[in-house]
Design a binder for these strands. Structure first.
Lengths: 119, 119
DNA sequence: TGCATGCATCGATCATCATCTATGTCAGGA
DNA sequence: TCCTGACATAGATGATGATCGATGCATGCA
């Protein structure tokens, strides 16, 4: 409710755990990881994240993102919020515009957790 | 409806795409990837996959998995079916028992897609 | 000060999902 | 042949989620 606009990691990342296949996941860890995956598990959010990640300077304005979808502005805003809340996207406001950028470490941690690459 | 019990990859895996952060994901790719992530994005299914993956011989009997959760047998069966349908778990029946095993390549592909490791 | 623009929040709606109980199916043993 | 045990399927229900239109809140400009 009182989060700073520039807060880089609103929630904990997934850097907590060894890869899925290396040892049984605790119930607690699973409860912590699932929301991050759930945030990613939507076609629109996947494309949003990918768009932001591959944008010049690694960040993108909401106005640009809106135009890439046939969805209402509130819907895009909602999806960006979901990605921001789990720590996959950072957010900064400059003037009237809001820019989102990926958090590379969060993405790398998640990839390692799933792919089994040593942490 | 007519899937073989031993079918190793009921659906396409995620080996289709370059990493999320390397270029904007197409709408089609996103629609294909999201269901796999959605299958993973549940605490119970995360633990199930992890349990199977870290089990001796890389496979586990449903009876063992049931005992690890405070959930009904049909619920566990449902979750296993979800993981199987997206190609994350393989399945084989021996006698009265059914064994599930991870599909390492599917997991690796997914990890690379997210983590950005070159495919 | 007043207005337009960029984005977030609110409240509603329809769809999807996790879970349950009940039941079906199939294999093995008495 | 009948029964038991292992697992899947069916149908119902309460919860969560994706989306929208309406509205609120800043910022910058005239």
């Amino acid at each position: 409710m009182s989060k700073s606009l520039t807060d880089p990691s609103p929630t904990q990342t997934v850097a907590c755990c060894s890869p899925l296949a290396s040892e049984p996941l605790s119930a607690d860890s699973a409860e912590r990881i699932a929301p991050v995956l759930k945030a990613l598990a939507d076609p629109v959010r996947l494309r949003l994240l990918s768009l932001v990640a591959s944008h010049a300077d690694g960040e993108a304005c909401v106005c640009d993102l809106n135009d890439a979808f046939d969805l209402s502005q509130p819907t895009i805003s909602h999806h960006l919020k979901v990605l921001h809340e789990v720590g996959l996207l950072g957010r900064s406001k400059r003037g009237v515009w809001v820019y989102y950028r990926v958090q590379p470490q969060a993405l790398a941690d998640l990839g390692a957790l799933i792919g089994g690459v040593a942490r």
